[in-house]
Amino acid sequence: MAQPGTIDPIHQFEIQKLVPINLFGFDMSFTNSALWMVIAVAVTTLVMVYGSASRSIVPGRLQSLAEMAYEFVANTLTGVTGREGMKFFPFVFSLFMFVFAANMLGMLPGSFTTTSHIIVTAAFAMLVITVVLVAGIVGHGSHFFGLFVPSGVPGWLLPFMVLIEVVSFVSRPISLSLRLFGNMLAGHIALKVFGAFVAALLGAGAAGILAPLPLLLAVALTALEFLVAFLQAYVFTILTCVYLNDALHPGH
């Protein structure tokens, strides 16, 4: 807990054990992070499963939401990979909905942002790259590695090009995980800092007259953070689609 009057923007990222569980010698406690993962899944399930339960031709509100999410992700996926990408649709859809729900739920005051932990975003990134590698090798065999050999390059340049391609491929999961992690973390820290500014100014006597300034900024940042919460989920999804496209159509 932060002492009164001090700024502790990191406190919100702390993992707290709610139900201690120990499995096979590992600490598998049900934490606040796990709780918000469960809530993200619950909210997504509520919209997608309960919302579509009535199967009406003229949709209600929740069903419209479910259809909107479906069509949004389906259009993003087919726009990048074409029709054959639809076999990855459940995976891409789950990914988008999980990240989006986690980002948005993280905007609730007092909640925990699971995507602000590097291990979560890194796990997603590794999952995406694993799926890409497996799909590519299963679908195209050794042809898949043609991805690293650009065509129309003079022979002496080829080793360098292959090296660059490999490095760019390996850096994909890193950039994918760091981008989401960094955006979530930085946004929440900035919000907390400006919020703490307001409190500090209000407690500082005559300077309290300046308190509305950081408040305004905090309001603007909150709006921006909502945009970022959506945008990062979208960016994560569309990059996943781009990488999947490489697995489906290797060769430049």
Partner: peptide, 13 residues
């Protein structure tokens, strides 16, 4: 915290 987070992430996802 990594192992626990990965475990719950795998479970929920």
């Amino acid at each position: 915290t990594f192992a626990g987070q990965l475990f719950w992430l795998a479970l929920t996802f």
